[in-house]
Each structure stands twice: as structure tokens, then as C-alpha cells.
């Protein structure tokens, strides 16, 4: 029975010491310890969050870089394609021009040749006429005896000359 009868003295001292202990530990230990622990947890949480953010940013940057690179590549391809087209068109143009020029030159040459030929023919005609006149003179001088024959011959000669 004595074992389960609480003694007033121990109740008194337990109450006093427990309350003092509670008060002092709250001030000296639980406050600082729990404060420090929760501060640390907060800082860890925020550090993790910022790391995550940095990772995302990094990802965005990489994506951006890739996009830019891709754009640059397509741009380069386009430029090269354009350049090639320009080159080709220039060559074609040049060819065309050259052809035209050549044609022109040929035509000019042909007309010149024609004119030359005509003038040459004319010259030949004149010379042939002169030659014929000379020949005729000689012939006339020699065969002037026969008038009729003479005039026939002249007519015939003239005819022949005109045809040519």
C-alpha cells in the first residue's frame, strides 16, 4: 500500500522541478534548437527550389541554343541555295547574252558579207561590162563589115549580160 501512496514531498518537488525545467529548457534549448532546425529546413528547401529553377533555366538555355543553331543552319542552307540559284541564273543569262551577241555578230557579218558580195557583184558587173565593151569594141572593129550580124550579136550579148 505504501508503494502506491504518493508522498506529498516528492509530488511537491517533482512539480516544482518539472515546471522550472520546462520553463528553462523552453528558453535555453527547445526555442534555439527547434528554431535552428526549422531555419535549416527552410534554407534547404529554398536551396533545392533555386537549384531546380537553375536547372530549368539551364534547360531553357540549351533549348534556345539548339533552336538558334538550327535556325542558323537553315539560314545558311537557304543562303547557299539562293547563291547557287543566282549563280545558275547568271550563267544562263550570260550564255543567253553571249548567244545573242554572237547571233547579232553573225547577222552583222552576214549582212556585211551580203553587201560586200553585192558590191563585188556590181563591181564584177561593171568590170564585165567594161570587158564586154572592150571585147565588143574589138569584135566590132574586126567584124564591122556585116551590119546585121553585128547588131544581132550585140543584142545577143546584151541579153546574156543582163541575165547574169
Amino acid at each position: 500500500m505504501e508503494l502506491i501512496t504518493p508522498a506529498i514531498g516528492l509530488i511537491f518537488w517533482t512539480t516544482v522541478t518539472f515546471l522550472i525545467l520546462l520553463f528553462l529548457l523552453k528558453k535555453m534549448a527547445w526555442g534555439p534548437i527547434l528554431g535552428a532546425v526549422s531555419d535549416r529546413e527552410e534554407s534547404i528547401k529554398s536551396a533545392l527550389a533555386s537549384a531546380e529553377e537553375a536547372r530549368k533555366e539551364m534547360q531553357n538555355l540549351t533549348a534556345d541554343n539548339e533552336r538558334i543553331l538550327k535556325e542558323a543552319r537553315t539560314q545558311r542552307d537557304e543562303m547557299m541555295k539562293e547563291a547557287r540559284a543566282i549563280k545558275e541564273s547568271m550563267i544562263a543569262e550570260a550564255k543567253e547574252e553571249a548567244k545573242e551577241e554572237a547571233n547579232k555578230m553573225i547577222a552583222q557579218a552576214q549582212s556585211t558579207i551580203r553587201l560586200e558580195k553585192q558590191s563585188a557583184i556590181a563591181e564584177i558587173k561593171t568590170q564585165v561590162a567594161e570587158l564586154s565593151v572592150g571585147i565588143a569594141e574589138k569584135v566590132v572593129k574586126k567584124e564591122l563589115a556585116n551590119d546585121k550580124e553585128q547588131s544581132d550579136l550585140i543584142a545577143q550579148l546584151l541579153k546574156e549580160v543582163t541575165i547574169n
Binding site: 525545467l21 528553462l24 529548457l25 534549448a29 534548437i33
Partner: peptide, 13 residues
């Protein structure tokens, strides 16, 4: 208890 925990509390400060 007071010695132990006040030492712990101080170490955080």
C-alpha cells in the same frame, strides 16, 4: 538536462 540542452542550444547560436 539543463547542462546538456543549454550546451546544445548555445551551440546553435
Amino acid at each position: 538536462l539543463l547542462l546538456l540542452f543549454s550546451a546544445a542550444g548555445r551551440s546553435y547560436k
